[in-house]
Design a protein around this nucleic acid. Structure first.
Lengths: 157, 157
DNA sequence: ATCATTGCAAAGTTTTTGCACCTGC
DNA sequence: GCAGGTGCAAAAACTTTGCAATGAT
């Protein structure tokens, strides 16, 4: 991967006025190859395991830059740890939302009805940005509930 | 307020098999009277200021019970602190979602297009719960962006 | 050469746990 | 009376900050 490679859909890191360093390359490289919903710890330990030397602080700082530039999305599934995933344009095939199991924390990505959803969201965004003079940059949609396993577990009790 | 009073829409605390104690009354009483998006600290200090004696740990534990029973919604606006608000049935007038300013953290409630939204959500919920055998209990919709003040501040720079 | 970036250690926050005491039912 | 609830203190978990050394352009 070169420094110029697009990470996510909003641009390169260079465009953000950032230097491309070894640690940043490691983080970007890893993130661009995974579809998971990673915590800072996930990223840090994954890289260490691969033998790549990086400090925890640097992971925090690199990820923060990527969020500020719209390259990563930050969200919380309810366990108090920040999670990150590549941001995709709403028109992209990869754009999706999450089903989250309240019980075990499992995350399912879905992109059914994305077209209907996008239409409604556009309508809402238009209206709300006028009404509240609010510049909308991103949206988060989460469904919370129980996955199959946890449902069974609960009914067995 | 009596112990039996409905807090939110899903029932009473007694129905959850919990004892109604003084600290729990304080928390419930406060929450049922406010429409804010409170952190644990907010609740704790607000009660202390009113002269009501309660421990921080108890606030954590009480709020957790209320979340587990669908009486409170828990969410994160991106600052790493859990926030809580009364949960409302999707058919309720008070059901709403949030516009969140990434810059100053301000939250605007909105309930425009709730009817369109509910229709789409029902469709999605139906489909997804079949497809993924997932029991959907709640949903979170957040728009992230810049409020009027922060937009101005940024363009002045 | 310069200024951004790194990574350690230390500190700051938020949340959870252990445990002796207390309280609603 | 007794199971469940409380609150303190301590610990754990997550994140940020200070600073000297390093590295990219």
């Amino acid at each position: 991967m070169t420094c110029e490679k697009h990470i996510g859909w909003r641009g390169t890191l260079k465009q953000c006025g950032c230097k491309m360093t070894k640690p940043r390359k490691m983080v970007l490289d890893y993130l661009s190859k995974t579809a998971e919903h990673l915590t800072i710890d996930d990223i840090y330990f994954k890289l260490r395991k691969k033998g790549q030397d990086i400090g925890l602080t640097t992971v925090y700082r690199t990820v923060e830059i990527l969020v500020q530039n719209g390259i990563l999305n930050k969200f919380d599934i309810g366990d108090g740890k920040a999670r990150y995933e590549l941001a995709f344009d709403t028109s992209s095939e990869d754009h999706h939302h999450h089903l989250i199991c309240c019980c075990c924390g499992m995350i399912i990505n879905y992109n059914d009805f994305i077209d209907d959803e996008i239409n409604l969201l556009k309508k809402i965004e238009n209206e709300l940005s006028k009404k509240h003079k609010f510049k909308i940059l991103n949206h988060i949609i989460q469904f919370q509930g129980l996955c199959e396993k946890c449902s069974k577990k609960k009914s067995d009790e």
